[in-house]
């Protein structure tokens, strides 16, 4: 079947098998940031944006994104690098394999809320598993980013 979508800002059409998962479709398109960590939809590694809303690409058929916008971490380079600097400052990226899904969901949270509390951060990102970091470094990084953004925006006013 023919699938038309906007992937990372570029409109494209592809012939796909009807049963292909969005995750596999995206990796096939060279979006290697999209990772698979489980088969039970509960690790969060494959998180992408569907019309700016974070979704698990392992749980959506590629056919379902007909006519819609899909964004992977490849499409958010600048926004990702801003936050990434703060996670890196904690050494919390560790092996990095869960990073793309975590970054996507963290970016979604930080777009949605100006100053989320610690509890809100934990709850929002609860579906993003990480086996290396123990989560604290990621939390410190996000909190430091929020402080930095607050100052930056305060200064701009």
């Amino acid at each position: 079947m023919e699938l038309t979508l906007t992937l990372n800002g570029k409109k494209m059409s592809r012939l796909i098998e009807p049963g292909v998962l969005l995750l596999d479709f995206l990796r096939g398109e060279g979006c290697c940031s999209v990772k698979r960590g489980c088969e039970t939809s509960n690790c969060g590694l494959c998180t992408v944006f569907l019309d700016d809303v974070p979704v698990l690409s392992c749980s959506i058929l590629a056919a379902r994104v007909q006519g819609r916008r899909v964004t992977t971490l490849e499409g958010l380079r600048q926004e990702a690098e801003e936050l990434a600097t703060f996670i890196a400052a904690q050494g919390a990226e560790q092996c990095g394999f869960c990073n793309p899904g975590f970054m996507m969901n963290a970016i979604a949270l930080l777009r949605e809320k100006e100053e989320p509390t610690v509890e809100e951060i934990r709850a929002y990102l609860a579906g993003n598993l990480c086996r290396c970091s123990g989560y604290e470094g990621q939390l410190r990084g996000i909190l430091a980013f929020i402080e930095w953004r607050k100052k930056k925006r305060g200064g701009a006013q």
Binding site: G30, C32, S33, V34, K35, T72, L73, E74, R77, A80, E81, L83, A84, T85, I87, A88, A89, G91, E93, C95, G96, F97, N99, P100, M103
Partner: peptide, 21 residues
């Protein structure tokens, strides 16, 4: 000193650096 990991930004921005990539 707590310098960031040399590969940190590549990993955090999802670059294709793992076996299956």
């Amino acid at each position: 000193t707590s310098v960031p990991k040399k590969d940190a930004l590549q990993l955090l921005t999802g670059q294709p650096v793992y076996t299956d990539d």
